[in-house]
Structure formats: structure tokens, C-alpha cells
Design a protein around this nucleic acid. Structure first.
Ligand SMILES: [Mn+2]
Ligand SMILES: [Mn+2]
Ligand SMILES: [Mn+2]
Ligand SMILES: [Mn+2]
Lengths: 248, 248
DNA sequence: TTGCAGTTTTAGGTATGCCTAAACCATACT
DNA sequence: AGTATGGTTTAGGCATACCTAAAACTGCAA
């Protein structure tokens, strides 16, 4: 449980890392952060909102910089150096989000875009001082672990809510911060990170969840349930492994 | 004294304002903020650290955007729209500096570069929330006035320290935040904004200043005295209008 | 008044990062 | 095996924001 990933070596943010390079590295990392999928050029393109050829070019450049391993038509993988750059960016992003929520009165559905820009503008010094001011938080407002100064972090193993079997008791651990609809629904229903809920039923790919205390059922579109990760508290063995993951 | 400049009209940060455009507008404004000089292309180029031709091109572009008035070989002037963009950037910059000093433990000589990058990355919402959190400060750590949400500000009329007549009593009002040497010297000597000092002598373009309480004299290279602005408390009429301003 | 020095603009070129359209390759299916 | 499909790369361009070198202008000074 919660294997401790670690990355030694020092801050890899060389000057050759432009904003774009930083975003690519972070996105490559993010696409395989929870499930260890191979990262394809088109997935990258879709996530980054650029065309496929743009990705090809950028990946070539990042290979030259030693940030990714890539041969034609093969999946894209970060080198150790690239992974460190990505983790440094993840650290920035999550610390900034934590600060925006804790001290600037932002809602957890508002912070992602702001952090997305700020993460490229702050200095290493800034990040360290912010980290200290916040008391070295280990988790961001969305339940995502924050890498420490040495880029190590606790990496909980959680499951997508939409893949959990029906009639399980689960605890909400993480919500994808780039899906504001999911964040807003949860805020409206006052379900927070750490809340324990019951997966009661699912129809047509949607997931219905009940709060343990109040019996109210909340219907989550599959798309939203796909943006939430949970840890299973009790798996009611009644079988029926939930809705198949009818991916996109 | 302290005439209240004001600018109505709303936030002018259209999407067409790139980081470069923002910096140009801010710099054009800054070059004439205290003395109402005509802004030349070469002054802009020197301040921005770019070549003269780059300035010509950018100024043309900003004229197309309606941010500056400019005809060939004439000085460069901001339009009302350009002035509002500039003031919006000044507001960001000075609020960010204030925050960095007050809440993140930065020294006043460290904040300029950080703010210089952050000012382009924060949203209007961010600025307003930061402003509220800081209690709507009207002056930044270097003594520079902070434009309000409506972009109006108190604009003190101060003089360059290097142009004050010898044997005057003056109060330190502002220090150019982009001259860290000046900031460090003052920090070392524990002279803060608002401190009252005595201009005792000047030789070879340098300026010597004594703290009113402790009699210690501080020699400031002309370059540093040029980065400080003061208000004259008592002008000892003994004449001799100080060192001529042997500009560059 | 003419010339010259310094400033400003034009001309031509580089680097980054994106695009569309067309060629290419690997794989999966008949 | 043969071919269709779709993901990937190449080819050719565009926009921004710089640069140096050369031409053009201004304004002051002999
Ligand atoms: Mn985020
Ligand atoms: Mn987050
Ligand atoms: Mn500053
Ligand atoms: Mn300042």
C-alpha cells in the first residue's frame, strides 16, 4: 500500500525546459500516473489540445534533450531526467493549488487553470518557501499526493470509481482536478475527500452512490465517475463487477 | 501634493496582450512615470534588453492594437487604452511584490524578478483576491504606489536623491526596485522607506547621506543615489544645488 | 547651408511552436 | 496472405518575437 516512489538526483529544470516542454513532460507523466499505460502520441495530442504532428515534433525535440525515449511508431516514455522534470512540475502545480484553496479562498474547482499557468512562472526558491509556509503538505485539495523537495511521494493505489463493483463501501480519495464538473457536483453534494460512500447501483454506465450517513443517492454520469478514484473499504462479494469500463 | 491620477474604463487586458506587449506597455509607462520625459525607441530597447529594430516592430504592432500613438521618428506615447494596460500590469507587479515580502519572507531586493514573471501568469480574479487578502495596500515594499482596482493611485511627487541640494533634510520615499544593489545597501544600513536622512556632502558625483539619529555617514555611488527618490523636509538654503546630474 | 553623427526604420534571417494535407507504417480482419 | 483502418510521421506553412546589417532620416554644428 502506498508504495513510496522516489527520485534522487537534483532539480532538473534546466533552462532548455520551455513552458511547452514542461507541459509535455507533466502530461506524459500524468497519463500514466495511476494506471501504467503506454503513452501514445495521439493521447498526448488530445490531452494537450494540439495536433498529432505537433506532438511528433516536440517529442523528437525532447528526445534530443534527453527527456524521453522514443523511436518511430513506438510508445513515448520519460527518461529518468524527464521523470524528474515532470515530478518537479507536479510538485509546483499541487503546491500552488493547495495555496490557492487554503489562503486565497479559491474553490477546488477553480484552482487548476490558475495553477496551470503559475507553475511555469515561479522560481525554485518560491516553491520551497511556499512549501514551508503551507507546512509541507503531502496531499493537494483534490487528494493527489505532492512530491517532496526530493521529488519522492506517497502514491496511494486507488481505483476508478466507475470500475468498482456494485454494493461496495468505498472512501473517496482523489478527484481529477481537470474535470470541474466532477468537482462541482461533489461540492454541491458536500462530499469531500475522505468521505465514505456506498456504491448502490449503476445503470447505463452511470454510477449511483449513496452517502453513508445521509441516505441520499447521487447519480454520477459515467464520465464523472471516471474522474474519481476511491479506495475500497468493503467489497460486498455479491459479484457483478460493476459496469464494464465502456471507455471513450 | 500627491495628485490623484485616475483612469476610468475597465480592465483592458484583452487577449491580444501577449507577455511581450504587456512588458512593452509597462516599460513605456515606467520610463515616464516620475519625470514626464518623451520615450524614445532606444531607451525602450535598452530597458527591455532588446535591439532597436525589435522595438520598431513591436511599437508598430502596438499601434495597430491601439495601445500606442506613434509616427515614424517621433517619440512613443501610450494611448488611454495602453495606459490602462500598463497600469493594470503595474498593479499586478506591485501587489505581487507586497505579497512576496509580507507573506513569503522575501527580502525587498529579491522580489522584483519573481514578480516580473508572475505578473503575466495571474488572472484578474487572482489579483483582486490577493489585493483583498493584503488589505488593499496603497504602497509596495519599495515605496511605489499601487493602483487600485479602478487603476487610480496616489502619485507622490518626489525627487531623485542625486538631484537634491547639499545639506537638505529629506525623507526616503522610493527606491527603484530593479536596482538590487541600492536595495541591499539600504537594507545593510537599516535605512527603510520613510527614514529621515541628511544629505551632508557629495564628491565626484557620489552622494553622502547621514541618518538623523545615528551620525554615521553613508556614501552612495551616483548610480545608486539615482535609484532613490526622496521628499525634501528642509532645504538648507546654503545654495550649491548638489551634484549636477551627470547622466549617461 | 551643408555635412555628419546618431537615431530610427527597412531588409533579410533565426528559433519556437503551432497548423493542415499528404505520405507512411503496423496491425487487425477477412 | 491481402487489404482496409487508423495511428504516426513528413512536407510545407504561419505567427510571434527576436537578431544583424544596411538604408534612411533628423537635427545639430561647422
Ligand atoms: Mn490541477
Ligand atoms: Mn490537483
Ligand atoms: Mn518591481
Ligand atoms: Mn516595487
Amino acid at each position: 500500500m502506498t508504495p513510496r516512489t522516489s527520485a534522487q538526483g537534483q532539480s532538473t529544470r534546466t533552462d532548455s525546459a520551455t513552458t511547452s516542454v514542461e507541459d509535455y513532460a507533466k502530461t506524459i507523466y500524468g497519463l500514466a500516473e495511476w494506471d501504467d499505460t503506454a503513452v501514445s502520441a495521439s493521447a498526448l495530442a488530445k490531452t494537450l489540445g494540439v495536433s498529432n504532428p505537433s506532438v511528433t515534433l516536440m517529442v523528437r525535440k525532447m528526445a534530443d534533450l534527453g527527456l524521453v525515449d522514443h523511436q518511430p511508431y513506438a510508445p513515448i516514455r520519460l527518461t529518468e531526467q524527464g521523470r524528474q522534470l515532470a515530478l518537479a512540475m507536479v510538485r509546483r502545480h499541487r503546491l500552488l493549488e493547495t495555496w490557492l484553496v487554503r489562503e486565497l479562498g479559491y474553490g477546488w474547482d477553480e484552482v487548476h487553470d490558475e495553477a496551470e499557468r503559475l507553475e511555469h512562472a515561479v522560481s525554485e526558491t518560491f516553491v520551497d518557501r511556499l512549501d514551508a509556509r503551507l507546512g509541507h503538505p503531502r496531499v493537494d485539495p483534490h487528494g493527489d499526493p505532492i512530491p517532496g523537495p526530493d521529488l519522492s511521494m506517497d502514491h496511494p493505489d486507488t481505483e476508478l470509481l466507475c470500475r468498482v463493483p456494485t454494493s461496495s463501501a468505498v472512501r473517496l480519495e482523489q478527484v481529477d482536478d481537470s474535470v470541474p464538473d466532477a468537482l462541482r457536483v461533489l461540492a454541491e453534494q458536500q462530499v469531500e475527500i475522505g468521505a465514505q460512500v456506498h456504491v448502490t447501483a449503476s445503470e447505463s454506465g452511470d454510477v449511483v452512490v449513496a452517502r453513508t450517513d445521509a441516505g441520499e443517492g447521487i447519480r454520477l454520469a459515467h464520465e464523472l465517475a471516471h474522474a474519481m478514484r476511491v479506495s475500497v473499504v468493503r467489497s460486498d462479494g455479491s459479484g457483478a463487477s460493476g459496469p464494464g469500463d465502456l471507455e471513450n
